[in-house]
Design a protein around this nucleic acid. Sequence first.
DNA 1: CGGCGCGACTAGAGCGCTCTAGTTCCACGA
DNA 2: TCGTGGAACTAGAGCGCTCTAGTCGCGCCG
Lengths: 340, 340
Amino acid sequence: MATPLPPRRRPTMVDVAARAGVSRALVSLVFRDQPGASAETRARVLAAAEELDYRPDSAARLLARGRSRTLGVLMTVREPFEADLVEAIYPEAERLGYEVLLSARTPGRDEATAVEGLLAHRCEAIVLLGPDVDDAFLAALGARTVAVVVGRAAPGLDSVHSADAEGVRQAVDHLVGLGHRAIVHVDGGTGPNAAARRTGYLTALAARGLGDRARVLPGAYHEDAGIAAAQTLLAGPELPTAVLAANDRCALGLLDSLRRNGIDVPGQVSVVGYNDDRLARLSHVDLTTVRQDAGLLARHAVRAAAARLDDPDRAPGETVLTPELVVRGTTAPPVRGERR
Amino acid sequence: MATPLPPRRRPTMVDVAARAGVSRALVSLVFRDQPGASAETRARVLAAAEELDYRPDSAARLLARGRSRTLGVLMTVREPFEADLVEAIYPEAERLGYEVLLSARTPGRDEATAVEGLLAHRCEAIVLLGPDVDDAFLAALGARTVAVVVGRAAPGLDSVHSADAEGVRQAVDHLVGLGHRAIVHVDGGTGPNAAARRTGYLTALAARGLGDRARVLPGAYHEDAGIAAAQTLLAGPELPTAVLAANDRCALGLLDSLRRNGIDVPGQVSVVGYNDDRLARLSHVDLTTVRQDAGLLARHAVRAAAARLDDPDRAPGETVLTPELVVRGTTAPPVRGERR
DNA sequence: CGGCGCGACTAGAGCGCTCTAGTTCCACGA
DNA sequence: TCGTGGAACTAGAGCGCTCTAGTCGCGCCG
């Protein structure tokens, strides 16, 4: 139907070889930066390639060498924290000599489809961002290829995530230190890590002798959950003086909803998020939050994948990074000595 | 160094063929859904493939057939509007029988690098999202491959974008219709389309006899520009009653900054964005904005790429879609008959 | 009963690379 | 004078597919 090849054929190694007056193999050497070509030949080959606007075809290259040296990254397009991760994956992958292929999970395209696409392109390992994938799927994937999960624990696979309970503890300690006693947690519902954060919250409160003041509001990892939680709080008899949200997006919804209803943050209510994504850092948001260092997570993930690829027998490991509270503008001491 | 092949070799067509007791070619037929295999053979092949967990290697496939049927998409990871576009590109590409490869431009990875990656993977066409690419680059790219630009005009290339002047006109008309006279425009600076929107604003005001009331504040396509603009306005002698922001992100910064300073939106100041990205639609933002239909833009872009690929001699075309004002909660009539 | 067309299937030549195993050529030392 | 070793380069066999040009058998027609 259509012309099988574009009018001006893409140049190949043969063309370059012919133009430079050498063999195909030599061109290959030059392009792989291997020893075995004299400086002037090398220059001649490069010049010829330049003139022809030649660039190696990675499909062929991939086919010919055993390894593709390609990492597949499964992501969503909406999550700011994942964007931070992606940005950090590229340089680390490059450093280790890997290419990166991105595949997005969208409402109409599930993780299985996205992963098939990556695997068909011979990705040697898959890095799964954002923990919204189910366990069975992960297990199956892990059996088929090298997979690294970022953002949550994944039994049997390599995973890189941060210590949620510790992060939450820091947040709680910060709030308690400021004088807060009525600290509500809007949780992540059934979302991944939500249980860990919830438990962390309860434990931290108990440790501060505030176990009986614990109050968990059902939530989720997105803005709407924050909004809903704000409605619940506003409808209640008395506002807490501080709220610990499931993540930054949830905190954002909460923040906006509170302010819209005339509540001063942090004057009347302090708000703490979780993740420290780009949005939280924006000057107009200026959210106090628990930082999960995206760069560090990404680097560890890429390294885990590479290490696993170099040594397939390596036992899968869980890397747990310590999160760190970042105090910004949404937390302050409570208004005044609260009643009771 | 490392084992060149993973312990359990990935199965190939030969394995499937052997197991099904047919030739390699027949397996190929079956997997390409071509006629020439009987129903039972087809079933047998599929069963064998299933048992072996075989899946075709797209590198080899790509190499063997002339065309890769792959579309490369150049994106950023941060722009919500681009996320909307990506989500819409997948289904349309699939419908037309194309695979999609994503490549991100990040602070540390310029568009040239991102595009090289895509091209090396034999993408037949590149769809460039977000117009943040320079003209010279586009021209060079257009000469090398099929390229479609989404979001702005690109002389000499296929492009799909919306009529900015028209969108701005609708916004202005809406505001004027509500009774606003003091309408400020925070522009997109030197950003793409900024000039068109600026001119559209001036023209629309003039058409309403408000030419002398025009006021353009220098801005950009991100939140910080909105914040800065808010500061400028707040520092001024009198607030305008309405602000037309360069895009939604800018509007968001503006919105937040105004509200933080105790300004009621839309009570005291109305705010209008541009794009209607996912963020604008969030219930806590509820921004009146000019919708660029991401789905439509994406579909047109993919179709343009496909059409171009089917007929390389097709002249590059500019598709201009009509944007549409979406009235939400950030616009209202001005407080009261303003002075003068 | 020979030929023909057709459905089912196969052989084998690429696609553009990589990589192993050479081959050439040229010092250089004994 | 003849190895000998190393640098520079080449031949050719794949990698896992696709696709063209078959072959084979079978029912059917004249």
